[in-house]
Design a protein around this nucleic acid. Structure first.
Length: 722
DNA sequence: AAAGCGGTACTTTTT
DNA sequence: GTACCGCTTT
């Protein structure tokens, strides 16, 4: 039993050789993958403000989940057209090189796990036979969230016996954004004509009020398989609507409600869940919970494993298990400082790529000295790699905890943080110790399970275990589990709680911004809301705040349209029409992005006080909040001229930078022009990219080769004709 | 090479 | 409000 990824990784290790991976391949998480993509983008000389690593990775991920290899991508007219249209025609080159680097590093990203499983089952008949005979029956839960790649794997694994049972609910499909396709359910009946369909319409979890209210929500979706769930449980309480002024007030209301319920209904902490759309919303709630001394647990991404210091030590572990792992190598080669700087690493990287090998191996090539690296730099690199090599050799034969402890010491990481007496430094030290302790905990757990069958659990066992943990899997090592749960609505799928709060029921938050533009997206958001409400057994409370701090600014949003989806007879009070007056228009002020969309000032704006300055320009509704304020360089010059008389508001947003107004130096540079740079000397502009305040020039310098310069900083001028 | 700085993007959601 | 990046200074 496990997720697709965790179950299949075990097979992939077993058959790694036949796939051309080392048995000890490591797995890149989202951030490792993003930074690898970024490296590739730069290596190809592309502008990472156009080729945004996250976006490109999403494209690559989509391709992989549809089993489109880089070479297939090259002949895929639709994909290429989409990339060209998005002004990123070389996406396919990034994909190809990224994939090559991963393979070379002995690394798989999350999507590769599924891709390689498909390849394995397609190309290795023996593996197919062994695996599919090992499992005579297969059950899949949450089938609506499977993607094409997973669908194919299942079809292959079940081909022999057809003993396949899947459970899914199209109303709970909330992962279309990562390639899940509801189509899989429909295909199922075609692929297995002998299959039987059971409709599970009776809900045994929730009160009938909750089930009926949820039905009234989901009925607003046009695109769904019709069905009506019902509950024979008692009617129960009506849905409680909480209206608050700020996110802090919202948190106060929620926490008070929890406390009063504990008094009145004898509920315990663990009976409550607070759900929200985005992880960032947990902060205000946490603050309030702490203030009232209520134990809680945030199930956010693997926030512990996302901390820099934890990632550092993990990178040491990964590199020792798989020395080819270049991302880990680069992360820690100079951490703690070993006087191995950027220049050295860049040179090594170029050298390694030229030789088609991982960084670690390249360090030991004799020809490394010939690259122009100083002897001292080479020595330091070799010293570092020798240390790693020493650990790497011991990985297979050493207890994970013992080795982890040694690595933490010998790497100098622990010493580095011990020396840091600041509060943050001490917290980081504690996190490192926590990580090492978790290795110990892992071993104990495994020892019990194995009952002596396996004598040593090694570091690669640990890594394998940890890299695929999902947020909800992380068990709380605290001895009491009696805590209020905080998590996103996504994470809550499949769980249930007696009492559920859904916080942040506001436009632009739930449904999220840009999620209302297409019916497809809006309906996925609505399904997510449906999932959130149906987590509750006894009671649901929905809350919204008039203003909320977001990205360092205040925002005011109308209550969510989803509140209106609920049949009012299930609500504990009628929605007040005035709440919806501003009907989806977002207001922002504060920070340096002060703006609102004209018209009357609503209650929340007046509350912000003393700054009733007429808007510089009233934006059409559709534009409000979609434009990021810019305050760089030339833009602010223009706006201070244009906004004369309103100096009282230093935070006023600049008018959008208009290319026609920009003083000459920015736009004076054109491709083909000869220029002279203060430090780099003479050269020729090859290309100008980017939009006005961020214009960049790719320049080939006569002596120094190509460089990418940001025009607003570059100290260069058109070459003077003699 | 390392520390200090100023500017920018970030917030969808997860394996 | 923060994390990260890249430039500048030392």
């Amino acid at each position: 039993m496990g997720t697709f990824h965790s179950v299949f990784v075990r097979f992939l290790r077993q058959y790694a050789q036949s796939l051309g991976y080392p048995e000890s391949f490591t797995i890149y998480d989202q951030s490792d993958s993003t930074s690898a993509v970024k490296t590739v983008i730069k290596e190809l000389g592309l502008d990472d403000s156009v080729y945004k690593p996250r976006d490109i990775l999403a494209r690559i991920s989509n391709a992989k989940n549809s089993l489109i290899t880089p070479s297939a991508y090259r002949t895929d007219g639709n994909a290429l057209r989409a990339d060209t249209y998005a002004k990123r025609p070389r996406t396919v080159d990034v994909y190809e090189l990224y994939q090559k680097r991963l393979k070379q590093s002995g690394v798989m990203d999350f999507d590769d796990i599924l891709v390689n499983m498909n390849i394995l089952l397609r190309d290795n008949p023996q593996a197919l036979e062994e695996i599919s005979s090992r499992f005579s029956h297969i059950m899949v839960d949450e089938y609506q969230d499977t993607n094409y790649s997973q669908y194919l794997i299942l079809r292959k694994l079940a081909a022999k016996h057809h003993n396949l049972c899947v459970v899914g609910d199209d109303s709970q499909s909330i992962y279309a954004f990562r390639g899940a396709q509801i189509q899989n359910i429909l295909n199922f009946r075609k692929d297995y004509p002998e299959s039987k369909v059971f409709r599970l319409e009776r809900n045994y979890r929730s009160t009938s009020t909750i089930v009926d209210a949820a039905n009234s929500i989901i009925e607003h979706n046009t695109n769904r398989i019709p069905k009506t769930c019902y509950s024979q449980a008692e009617k129960g309480e009506k849905i409680h609507i909480i209206k608050a002024f700020t996110e802090q007030d919202e948190a106060v209301e929620i926490v008070s409600e929890i406390q009063s319920r504990m008094r009145k209904d004898g509920a315990q902490y663990q009976d409550f869940a607070i759900l929200y759309r985005t992880n960032a919303q947990s902060r205000a709630l946490e603050e309030q919970l702490r203030r009232r001394n209520i134990p809680y647990l945030v199930y956010s991404g693997n926030s512990f494993f996302e901390r820099a210091e934890v990632k550092d030590l993990m990178a040491y572990f990964k590199l020792c298990v798989n020395p080819s792992d270049d991302e880990s190598f680069k992360r820690i080669v100079n951490k703690p400082a070993r006087a191995i700087g950027d220049t050295t690493v860049k040179a090594l990287e170029a050298f390694a790529h030229a030789n088609g090998m991982p960084l670690f191996r390249a360090v030991f090539l004799e020809s490394l000295e010939a690259t122009g690296l100083r002897g001292a730099a080479v020595q330091k690199l070799r010293a570092f790699c020798s240390m790693i090599d020493g650990f790497a050799r011991r990985v297979p034969v050493t207890d994970a905890f013992e080795l982890a402890t040694e690595i933490a010491e010998a790497s100098g990481l622990l010493a580095m943080y011990r020396a840091d007496l600041s509060i943050e430094g001490q917290a980081r030290l504690a996190n490192l110790e926590e990580l090492v302790n978790s290795v110990a905990g892992f071993i104990e757990e495994r020892d019990e399970e194995a009952e002596g069958a396996q004598d040593t659990f090694t570091l690669d066992d640990f890594l394998e275990n940890v890299s695929l943990l999902s947020s909800v899997d992380v068990t709380d090592d605290d001895d009491t589990n009696n805590k209020v749960a905080l998590m996103t609505a996504h994470s809550a799928k499949g769980l249930e709680f007696p009492y559920v709060f859904v916080a942040g029921m506001e436009e632009n938050l739930f449904p999220g911004q840009n999620m209302v533009l297409s019916l497809k997206d809006l309906e996925e958001e609505r399904r997510l809301f449906y999932v959130a409400v149906t987590r509750a057994r006894k009671a649901v409370a929905l809350s919204y705040a008039g203003t909320r701090m977001r990205n360092g600014r205040h925002e005011s949003n109308a209550p969510s349209r989803f509140l209106r989806d609920i049949d009012s007879r299930y609500l504990d009070r009628p929605l007040e029409d005035e709440d919806f007056d501003n009907d989806g228009v977002r207001h922002e002020w504060g920070g340096f992005g002060s703006r609102w969309s004209g018209g009357r000032l609503d209650r929340f704006q007046r509350q912000s006080g003393d700054r009733e300055i007429p808007p510089l320009r009233s934006a059409p509704v559709g534009m409000t909040g979609t434009q990021k304020p810019r305050n760089s360089g030339y833009g602010s010059v223009i706006s201070s001229a244009g906004a004369a008389g309103v100096e009282k508001s230093p935070g006023r947003p600049s008018a959008p930078a208009d290319p026609d107004f920009v003083p000459s130096p920015m736009t004076a540079f054109k491709p083909g022009m000869r220029i002279e740079h203060n430090r780099f000397g003479p050269g020729e502009i090859l290309e100008i990219t980017g939009v006005v305040p961020e214009l960049k020039a790719r320049v080939r310098f006569d002596e120094l080769g190509e460089k990418l310069l940001l025009l607003k900083y570059a100290k260069m001028r058109p070459e003077q004709k003699q």
